[in-house]
Amino acid sequence: MHAIGKSVRELSVGPPTVRSMTDAIVVEGLVKRYGATTALDGVDLTVAEGSVLGLLGPNGAGKTTVVRILTTLLVADAGRAEVVGLDVQQDADRVRAAIGLTGQYAAVDEYLTGSENLEMVGRLYHLGKAEARRRAGELLERFDLADAANRPAKTYSGGMRRRLDIAASLINRPRVLFLDEPTTGLDPRSRLAMWEFIADLADGGTTILLTTQYLEEADRLADRMVVIDHGRVIARGTGDELKAQVGGQRLEFTVTNAAVLPDMVQRLRPLATDEPHVDEPGRRVSLPVSGGAEVLAEALRRLDGSAAEIVDAGLRRPDLDDVFLALTGRVTEETGEAGDEPVTAVGSAR
């Protein structure tokens, strides 16, 4: 949002966006070491009040460490962190009263029922007995746990625990909510439901810092994103800005028979803004283009009369997986052992 005026290049590294009076979270030069491991190596970020920031990064990038410091659980070795204008170290108690935390691993008391869990947290926020109970009931309803309210959380499924955990972090109507990988381990349906909950909260004005390894998730929920790797910010901006970094859109065709590909390239080359890419085993041709749907229409016209039997045709915008690959030269999956594969030219990633 603040960054819109800047060029894409600047966005990829430069300083964080200018600090505004209404930033709910301000982090400057955060450093955290564990023995020889440097978990955070000078992280800067800001989150505007009422917005959603997606903190992206692969395993071990330092996402949880950032969340822990901002939620007062850890003390940074250097740097400064403020939440709702309060220093997380000096004013820890007031920060705690203003935030909600859903950690990476559900922190619910297995032996207590769903409603006992929420009431306990409400009491610890000093809501008073009646209000804690009322609020617990409300949240159980909202998170679809009313039927299980009186069962020990031990009997809950992973998705239910996760929802209970989020409900617990909302008891006190936090101004700022921290969600550390809120959908990891959820099935696709629960994930969708969780996205809706989070989107609702954001609509209600809650400032949210959300960590995730799912680029689609950040793309969908976050207003802005910060990508970290090895404890450093490697990119920041809106989803669109990040995507723009890996280049524009591409036209892709998949056919039944690879033999027709050279002929297709011949026919399509005039539309391409750069060298087309042929993937023989994948029976696919992909060419960088500019323009919208009319390019696709034009391409199809040009293919008229060729022997190609097209099984898939489309105008594809790069997704954040492409962004990550372009930024780090690695894929985001844990299989990313292929870690040191050189950074491919921007735009031709994959």
Partner: peptide, 17 residues
């Protein structure tokens, strides 16, 4: 181990509690 201490420590409660 179960992460409950993290939950408690993120709440504005007495650290002796």
């Amino acid at each position: 181990q179960k992460g409950l201490i993290d939950r408690f420590r993120s709440l504005p409660m007495a650290s002796s509690a």
